[in-house]
Design a protein around this nucleic acid. Structure first.
Lengths: 347, 347
DNA sequence: CGCTGATTTGGAAGCGCTTCCAATCGGATG
DNA sequence: CATCCGATTGGAAGCGCTTCCAAATCAGCG
């Protein structure tokens, strides 16, 4: 059907040089005269030649594939905004640096997830892996990856010190800052819908909030915590219980935006006015937080930027000089985005 | 660092057979005795052997990579729920059939998008491509793909007849049905926030709505249409103008959920009660439609299922018997999901 | 028991590329 | 002008796999 694609030999023939020389100019190798370079470039152009990556990798050339591993909590409710932001951020850099990004989304349940991820990595013979929560907390995984010689970057790991580079933000400080924000507006009774306990970075957010309340001299039952799982549904289902008591919280903090949107939904449904009757705040600043009414006050986390950094770390590690450098730990600043879901307590 | 990965020759040596035989059992080839099969399987197991896909493809083996090409309208607001649903649907089937799915998201702007997609396809030497809107409407693209021998499936194309298989739903009928739904509840004045004109399937939805109104005997100015671009922002910005007139619509239909969520946001902001003051309905039934308050009445489109079908078509075309069959056009049923954003008109 | 044809197995070529190593070239040097 | 060294270039091996083709094996049959 289609004409056979031109190979490196076609280029060599047309430009009248050896195959090895063509390979050199293709890879920006040293020791090639400008004349040769020009001749080859011309032939490449004329033929519309494109290297066959399969062949290149087989022959031991530098692999430039990077895997982005994302978790989907449930089949039907992927953490999609978070994931898209990651993807966009990584994509932007990969385009610049000539690395190819491949995203894999897997359900985080099931005992063999580690095996499957490793399989994916082996299969693709990729040179780098970006791990997102909660995979970024699986130290066995990142160790195995590093051992396989894949440059590994973990996004928002709970423990930045273990194997592989890390990019994240100071989650404890973010939790603290958000609580202060609420405290400053006069709130004294709080609810908190936590995420999954395995997500260490989310737990740190909670810890920060608790610290802020402690320092403000509030006692333990000023903070009512329930365990959710980051989903919209969790917010919907858990909010009522949180505010059912005799002396309910005037502000509830959610581990992430999706949960907050769920809480907001439940509040609306139950006839509460947000923020008059109840303030709601959360973390991440994913697009959904600006989509709902009232738009959410949330801690902005530079997700795209994190992914960009991750890509950049991999690119640097795989390109010349920086290769072999010890893994980096980068911390990006967060900020509180004030929208309309937080007000002064009415009671 | 890591021990070299075992190759097919290692397996051959350990099991005491020829490399060719190993290859045969690996590929479920014919003409292999059960004894051999067992011996090889054992060696594979013992060595933890995994075929090197690069090498396999190079050697001319069947390629099993499928590309899912998605559009991101703008950098910051990817159509993420839609895309995730597609991905999940395709993923499910690819896992079953042994094909590998690779998703690529590209900004749809820029004149060279076609070239970039083609480049991606050439590069990956993939065997199949799933095109999502608006790429599914680019006939030049699908023709080029088909010519390249890639099994091409278009999701929701405006014209199912052109090159490549097609999976979608009857968008015109969906538009008609949704309008009937509104008509039945007593609405007589309508607004419609359209999507981008290039998305043919979305245009058909509009056409269906118009037909329903025509058939109901309403005249042309019973339908006020404005052009949006599928985004939340479009909904926010376009709604006010739509309902500003002396005799405003009592119901507005949006080309997709994101836009409807935006319209809902604007309505809230401007102090309107939905659905008492204004009904809002849309298309797609992406998760976000159930997240907002009030949850949206929307036309459910089986997005996951569409992607699954697309994958299945590719798998069938690339596996034995069905190979070479003429492209299929599959139409999936839609349904109206009644939630709370539609009521009877108050005026 | 020898022969034919079908089935199973092994050998070897080659996919398109990188890279090592040897050959060549071009001055600068004595 | 002969010599030598570094910069270029070409030749060839080989990455791990599939597949064509020939060799070997096995039944079945006269």
């Amino acid at each position: 059907m289609t004409a056979r694609k031109p190979t490196i030999d076609d280029v060599a023939r047309l430009s009248g040089v050896a195959r090895a020389t063509v390979s050199r100019v293709l890879n920006d190798g040293p020791n090639v005269s400008d004349r040769m370079r020009a001749r080859v470039a011309e032939a490449v152009e004329a033929l519309g030649y494109q290297v066959n990556l399969q062949a290149r990798f087989l022959a031991g050339g530098a692999n430039r594939t990077v895997l982005l591993i994302c978790a989907s909590d449930t089949e039907n409710e992927p953490n999609s905004y978070y994931q898209s932001a990651l993807e966009i951020g990584a994509l932007r850099v990969s385009a610049q640096t000539g690395f190819e990004l491949v995203t894999h989304t897997l359900a985080q349940g099931g005992g063999d997830v580690v095996r499957r991820i490793l399989h994916l990595v082996d299969d693709s013979r990729c040179c780098g892996v970006i791990l997102t929560p909660p995979f970024s907390d699986w130290t066995d995984l990142s160790s195995a990856l590093v051992e396989r010689d894949a440059t590994t970057v973990r996004i928002s790991p709970g423990d930045p010190a273990s194997a592989g580079a890390a990019v994240g933000m100071d989650d404890e400080a973010a939790g603290y800052a958000l609580a202060r924000h609420l405290l400053d507006r006069g709130h004294r009774r709080f609810g908190f819908i936590q995420g999954l306990a395995e997500h260490l970075s989310a737990e740190q957010r909670f810890r920060g909030t608790r610290r802020a309340l402690d320092e403000a001299g509030l006692d333990a039952d000023a903070l009512l915590a329930v365990r959710g799982n980051f989903t919209f549904r969790a917010g919907v289902e858990l909010l009522p219980g949180l505010i059912a008591g005799a002396n309910p919280p005037t502000a509830v903090v959610c581990a992430n935006d999706d949960t907050a949107v769920g809480a907001l939904f439940a509040a609306h449904r139950d006839g509460l006015d947000v923020p008059r009757d109840l303030s709601i705040a959360s973390f991440d600043d994913t697009p959904v937080s600006a989509l709902v009414w009232p738009p959410l006050t949330t801690v902005h986390q530079p997700i795209q930027e994190m992914a960009s950094r991750a890509m950049r770390i991999i690119a640097a590690a795989r390109t010349g000089k920086a290769a072999g450098t010890l893994p980096a730990h980068e911390y990006l600043p967060f900020s509180i985005v004030e929208r309309h879901s937080v007000g002064a307590p009415s009671r």
